[in-house]
């Protein structure tokens, strides 16, 4: 079953075509990689999927529903969530609160019942805190629950960002360069972690990554973007041997 479909999506910024006629079909439960040189339009693709940008042409379909023009936040409620290339945590909040923010969409209580402290809300708040704590335990951050997010070391901030995305109950998780700035050891444990959460939460994972070790290691299928166009698609082995990909990366005609 297809979970996400992009059909001929084009996004321009002024004269620059960031994404051109981009088409991809992601199956439920798949783990798929998106690679390409800097400025190839990878993050733009994520921004179109999550609703930060609206494309000029093309359609975005999520579980049989056309979401091309839908705002960003209802998409999260439908089950699309992401992390960011440059970590975006809530800096003045604790680790636990960062997780709780992501549960706010599932609160379903009016502001009046919240201020009045209705028993229904208090029960819900307690459940949310328990659930958030469970999640933190699962990602091994529970001992830091009351620490402020920026005080965490880099690797743990990345993990917190993924945990925060998980707290929205996503079906499709978009990871934007999760291994950026990590050493090989951290990268290996991240790969293990991604596989683990995919099984546990029954996720479809779409991942942008520069470290070939990660994409080659966990993805069954890889897409290659260059100048906003898909230049190759296939298994890791096929991609590794594709002359176009080699050209894009090594820059035969000085294109990198």
């Amino acid at each position: 079953m297809s979970i996400l479909k992009l059909d001929g999506v084009t996004k321009r910024f002024g004269g620059l075509v960031a994404l051109s006629d981009f088409t991809v079909n992601i199956e439920d439960g798949e783990i798929i990689g998106l690679i390409g040189p800097n400025g190839a339009g990878k993050t733009t693709a994520f921004n179109v999927i999550t609703g930060v940008y609206k494309p000029e042409q093309g359609r975005v379909t999520f579980i049989d529903r056309d979401i091309t023009m839908l705002k960003a936040h209802p998409r999260t409620a439908m089950g699309i969530c992401r992390t960011f290339q440059n970590i975006r945590l809530f800096d003045q909040m604790t680790v636990l609160e960062n997780i709780l923010v992501a549960m706010h969409i599932r609160l379903k209580k009016s502001i009046f019942s919240v201020v009045a402290g209705s028993p229904g809300y208090q029960k819900r708040e307690k459940e949310m805190k328990e659930e958030a704590f469970e999640l933190l335990k699962y990602v091994n951050l529970d001992h830091l629950a009351n620490e402020r997010a920026p005080n965490l070391p880099y690797g743990q901030q990345r993990r917190l960002e993924i945990a925060r995305a998980l707290a929205t109950n996503p079906k499709l998780l978009l990871l934007d360069e999760p291994a950026a700035g990590m050493n090989p050891q951290e990268t290996a444990s991240l790969m293990e972690f991604i596989n683990k959460i995919r099984e546990e939460f029954k996720l479809t994972v779409f991942i942008i990554e520069h470290q070939m070790m990660v994409v080659m290691g966990i993805c069954k299928r890889i897409l290659v973007l260059d100048y906003g166009k898909t230049i190759a698609e296939g298994t890791p082995r096929e991609i590794q041997n594709n002359p176009k990909v080699i050209e894009a990366y090594l820059g035969v005609k000085d294109s990198a």
Binding site: T50, V52, A72, H73, P74, T76, A77, C81, R82, F84, R88, L89, F90, D91, Q92, M93, E97, L100, V101, A102, M103, H104, I105, L107, K109, I111, V114, V115, Y121, E125, M128, R164, A165, T168
Partner: peptide, 21 residues
Amino acid sequence: SSYGRAFKAIRDNEVAAEAMG
């Protein structure tokens, strides 16, 4: 409350707050 956390999230990082729904 949960609303207060949402408010503070908007203050801290609007883009991330929207991405969290």
